[in-house]
Design a protein around this nucleic acid. Structure first.
Length: 514
RNA sequence: GAGCCCGUAGCUCAGCCGGUAGAGCAUCUGACUUUUAAUCAGAGGGUCUCGGGUUCGAACCCCGACGGGCUCACCA
């Protein structure tokens, strides 16, 4: 009997701490910089000091002296600080980058003590330094600070990526975002714009009388959306908890309680689903609820919010996405889901009465149908397959089926539909809103229907939330609700092809280190 | 979860039909004090992601693993 061809022996994982120590010790760049670090300390210079009094940002100096002629001395003494991004002529010229931009530093023996010249000799690309000196424009036209004092603020032990081609490896850019941000101005711009967008959104809503609130991330019942949750465990309670898939049910409880007639939350949701250029396991949403309003009010509000944040991001309601320009200027087109499908495919689902007929119709339209779909799911499938990707300019797709909208009020004109809309742009959904279902008995029945769907194998069906039904039994005012996917909105307003570009630290598999 | 593609120096990339590793920048040494991707001369730097296999010989061919990208599925 010959030896059984066994699976190859599992590679021994390296102890990551030992590996870090070993790799560091063998790193020629790091060792060269460690020697300079020692030389600094030997000269009495602390390479990691506590603070620096900055008086100017690079961009402010530039705008202040944009018009002075080459060769002009300003007489203004500034204290600037930032990261060394280029060294020319043996340290005589240093490009210093701060959060606002770049400025050149001139370090010459005429202005610096011999000790300071020695310190400059020990500087490397990537070091953080502070510089004191007079501003002038060189004969070659470069705005420059004539250093009279140089302070090291942080010695960099590792070299930066190459100055010309920069860092382009997408994996490194996402894993080591700090490097990406140092090297790629467009990454900084995108994440800064994200912050502007969120601030503008908050300010707008607060100006409209909305109260910002926080609701639980840890849920005992996974509700408010149809999605698979992450499960975690609380040791002291001895129970599993779900990371929330949506804040919806808690926010509406706050409306019931009268905390405010208008509440909103901008925060994270978690869904245990696939990762793609448009999906990250954790993502950020705006959800807001406005008492005494319905879904038509939400359409206007959606338009107002998108207009407002588009201008905050880009100064215009036009957003360039690839080779297209999206116009975030209301009013957006309003198209019913069934109407769109009818127009595009010629099939009018409203003329089909039963689920089996709807499934047949969807199947004939090329949709993947497994036979368990109800009428609304079949219509949704047809919409997803044929209509969704055609919606380039912002469009409210209205009157979604009741079957797929367990938290929305039945449409006042057609019991198969709800007063719900989703806003699409560039072929993807960015907003979802409805006249909230406020009838507790109807809500209870909808939850029961969801439970039946779950029993039938739909693991994304929502759980019964009896406390939420109880809240409704105390009376929820007519309420309009709206959710906006912040990440996707930021993608559109920053022309980012991947959701990972608009999330500072997107979810990545760890490096195993074998 | 499936399919396709990718992984070479710190970074950006070459590496042909399988013959034993290259460039630029960066680093180090020297020259040079008004540069702008500074320049010039020299030097060092590699477990070719990892593990098997085929072969006299593998960065290259085959199998597997790991990581990433795109597409699809699911969804926002």
């Amino acid at each position: 009997m010959t030896e059984t061809p066994s699976t190859p022996p599992a590679p021994q994982p390296r102890d990551p701490v030992a590996a870090f120590r070993e790799d560091s010790a063998n790193n020629q760049f790091r060792n060269a910089r460690l020697e300079k670090l020692s030389a600094l300390r030997a000269a009495g210079v602390e390479p990691y000091p506590y603070r620096f009094d900055r008086t100017w940002l690079a961009a402010d100096i530039e705008s202040q002296y944009a018009d002075i002629a080459a060769g002009t001395e300003t007489g203004l003494e500034v204290r600037i600080c930032g990261r060394i991004r280029a060294i020319r002529n043996n340290g005589m010229f240093i490009d210093l980058h701060d959060s606002s931009g770049k400025i050149q530093v001139f370090s010459h023996k005429d202005f610096l003590t011999p000790d300071q010249i020695e310190l400059v000799r020990l500087l490397d690309l990537g070091d953080m330094i502070g510089v004191t000196g007079l501003v002038r424009r060189t004969p070659r036209g470069e705005l420059t600070v004539n250093a009279s004092e140089v302070n090291i603020l942080a010695k960099a032990l590792l070299p930066l990526p190459e100055k010309y081609h920069g860092l382009s490896d997408v994996e490194t850019r996402y894993r080591q975002r700090y490097l990406d941000l140092i090297m790629n101005p467009e990454s900084r711009d995108t994440l800064r714009k994200r912050s502007l967008i969120m601030t503008a959104m908050r300010n707008y809503l607060i100006g409209e009388g909305f109260l910002e609130v926080e609701t639980p991330m840890l849920h005992t019942i996974s509700g408010g959306a149809t999605a698979k949750p992450f499960v975690t465990h609380h040791n002291a309670l001895g129970m599993d908890l779900f990371l929330r898939i949506a804040p919806e049910l808690h926010l509406k409880r706050l409306i019931v309680g009268g905390l405010s007639d208008r509440v909103f939350e901008i925060n994270r949701c978690f869904r245990n689903e696939g990762i793609s250029p448009r999906h990250n396991p954790e993502f950020t949403t705006l959800e807001l609820y406005q008492a005494f309003a319905d879904y038509t009010d939400m359409m206007s509000l959606t338009e107002a919010i998108l207009e407002h944040v588009a201008i905050a991001a880009n100064g215009t309601t036009d957003a360039v996405v690839g080779d297209r320009v999206l116009h975030f200027k209301g009013p957006f087109a309003r198209r019913s889901m069934a109407g769109l499908v009818h127009e595009i495919t010629g099939v009018d689902f409203l003329q089909i009465d039963d689920a089996a007929g709807a499934r047949d119709a969807a199947r004939k339209l090329g949709c993947k149908i497994d036979g368990k779909e109800n009428w609304g799911q079949a219509l949704e499938a047809a919409f997803g397959h044929h209509a969704e990707h055609t919606l380039i300019q912002p469009t409210h797709v209205t009157d979604l089926p009741r079957d797929i909208s367990p938290l929305a009020k039945v449409h006042r004109a057609d019991p198969r539909l709800t007063e719900r809309f989703e806003t699409y742009a560039n072929g993807i959904e960015i907003a979802n809103a409805f006249s909230e279902l406020t009838d507790p008995q109807d809500q209870f029945a909808r939850f029961e229907d969801q439970m039946h769907q779950r029993e039938a194998g739909n693991d994304e069906a929502q759980d019964m939330d009896l406390d939420y039904v109880t809240a409704l039994e105390y009376g929820l005012a007519p309420t309009g609700g709206l959710g906006i996917g912040i990440d996707r909105l930021v993608m559109m307003l920053t022309n980012s092809p991947s959701i990972r570009d608009v999330i500072a630290f997107p979810t990545m598999r760890p490096i195993t280190g074998i």
